[in-house]
């Protein structure tokens, strides 16, 4: 596999796998993530997969006594070269498909109509297009459990609001430019809001605090207000 290593201070190394966002780069990110998930190094603290990089955090104190003249960064680079140079890109990793129920429109999606009008569609058509695609979770970042998703149709793209809302409720589904996403926690933001899911994306006390992880595929499933309440979603 082709990659470059860059230091990020004295306790992290960025593995760069490309400089643009595409599926091949994403596959490489997934191959390395899955390798690190199954082969931990004693000096490794954790890793962060992103669009075109995987960053490895290490503890120089755990390396201090293994050094033979080299510095900790060199030690880690050597071990990474040994592990990664022969790593196949197409390591088959099991892909999870996660279905996210969404109650579109009405009080949960105040911007659904304007997204439709902007694109010369009806609100139902926007819902149909949004919920028929399969999306890739490229990375989790920005906020706990927030997925950066790829795969939205440009037919329903819509620019950010000129002035952001002060508060977007948690679990709201939105569109910003060519991207769609879900806010796990309440936060200010300029996205067009089209619906809300009753499913929690971030649960700090669960064993895995984030519902989604990089590499997942997701689909949105339209549900009625009645179903939203039955799922345990809150009103309003």
């Amino acid at each position: 596999m082709d990659y470059s290593l860059y230091p990020l201070g004295e306790n992290a190394i960025i593995i760069e796998l490309g400089n643009e966002l595409n599926l091949l780069t994403h596959q490489k990110v997934q191959a390395i993530s899955s390798f690190l998930e199954n082969h931990s190094f004693h000096w490794m603290v954790e890793y962060i997969p992103a669009f075109s990089t995987v960053t490895i955090f290490y503890n120089p104190l755990k390396i201090m006594n293994n050094l033979k003249g080299e510095l900790p960064n060199q030690f880690v680079c050597n071990e990474l070269h040994e592990a990664l140079s022969d790593l196949p890109v197409n390591q088959h990793t099991e892909t999870r498909i996660v279905e996210i129920p969404v109650c579109y429109g009405e009080q949960f999606g105040p911007d659904l109509e304007s997204v439709a009008k902007l694109n010369g569609l009806t609100a139902d058509e926007v819902v149909q297009i949004h919920s028929s695609a399969e999306y890739t979770v490229y990375m989790i970042g920005f906020a706990p459990g927030f997925p950066y998703l790829g795969g939205m149709s440009e037919e329903i793209a819509a620019p950010r609001l000129p002035s952001p809302r002060l508060k977007i409720p948690e679990r709201t589904v939105g569109i910003a430019g060519k991207q769609t996403g879900i806010y796990p926690i309440s936060t200010p933001g300029g996205w067009n809001l089209i619906g809300r899911t009753p499913v929690e994306l971030f649960q700090p006390n669960a064993e895995t605090p984030s519902l989604l992880r990089a590499g997942d595929k997701i689909r949105f499933k339209p549900i009625s207000y009645q179903e939203y309440i039955e799922w345990g979603g809150q009103e309003g």
Partner: peptide, 10 residues
């Protein structure tokens, strides 16, 4: 730029 990891002191 594509988002990537940052660290304490970046």
């Amino acid at each position: 730029m594509l988002s990537e990891a940052v660290s304490f002191g970046t």
